[in-house]
Nucleic acid binder design. Structure first.
Lengths: 139, 139
DNA sequence: TACTTCCTGCGAGCCCTTTGCAAGAGAATG
DNA sequence: CATTCTCTTGCAAAGGGCTCGCAGGAAGTA
């Protein structure tokens, strides 16, 4: 799943910790730094949380990983190649749904045309009520 | 600017601190708790930061104030009646632009139709490059 | 193998926010 | 007004999440 060259090509050293962090992010889909650490530790205890933070930052700098803000302050990390969807965050149950980026195409164009604003769709979360909670609230 | 009844009607006591917090939020437009505190203290030093936090929360519970996540973790507060725009947050210069809610109308409808997701437009920030920074980056 | 540089673990520290507690102040009542 | 009940406040401590400095250790290079 991880090719040694991926990291070397970016000028990064290939350390076990770094590989594990990248691997965890890829496996988890969405993950907070804490969750990444937990995942990594499940097979390799003793890896320090600050190492996870530093590696997430490093991997983000070279473009292998990205983060998104889902609202509660904490960033959520994704493998760069997996970030092909929007996040629909339910304000009620906290569930995180996905929607294709294309759903926002018109919106992005509008903002670009009207305000010259170039939206980074991968970086924003959409808040609201998921269908389940909306149904509950409707009752 | 503040009617005594606004607070009383909601079942809240009318304390000087509470009035000041509400007033500050209304005057500031967008404001972090820290900024609200600063504003309040400019006329009334000695008001505790935790009082500001508690009042923001209280005022939000009764619907006089709302908060938005602009991404860096901190919430930003608005008077409820002023939240009639989207936030366009520039990832480069940090500038916060506004756009009318209607810009997102199609987008909101799409999400509703396709996923049953009821977007709370007032609660999400849109990330990207503002026109200035996009121009700079283009050079 | 020897060397340079980058990374890691650890601990301390920082920022923002929340909490517990005791004193103080609103507001309803008599 | 005085009394009383309850909500609020200020203060200080604590919590969560993240960053930083340091010294030892490992990756990559020749």
């Amino acid at each position: 799943m991880i090719k040694p060259n991926e990291l070397r090509e970016k000028g990064l050293r290939l350390t076990p910790q770094r590989e594990l962090v990248l691997q965890a992010v890829r496996q988890l889909g969405h993950a907070t730094p804490e969750e990444v650490a937990e995942k990594v530790r499940s097979t390799h205890p003793g890896i320090n949380l600050s190492t996870v933070y530093r590696n997430l930052e490093t991997l983000e700098n070279v473009g292998l990983v990205l983060h998104t803000h889902l609202g509660h302050g904490g960033a959520t990390y994704h493998a760069a190649e997996e970030l092909t969807h929007l996040h629909l965050v339910c304000s009620d149950c906290g569930d995180i749904g996905d929607a294709p980026i294309e759903s926002a195409a018109n919106f992005v164009n509008t903002l670009s045309d009207d305000y010259g604003f170039k939206t980074d769709v991968t970086h924003f979360a959409v808040y609201g009520l998921c269908s389940k909670c909306a149904a509950k609230a409707g009752k």
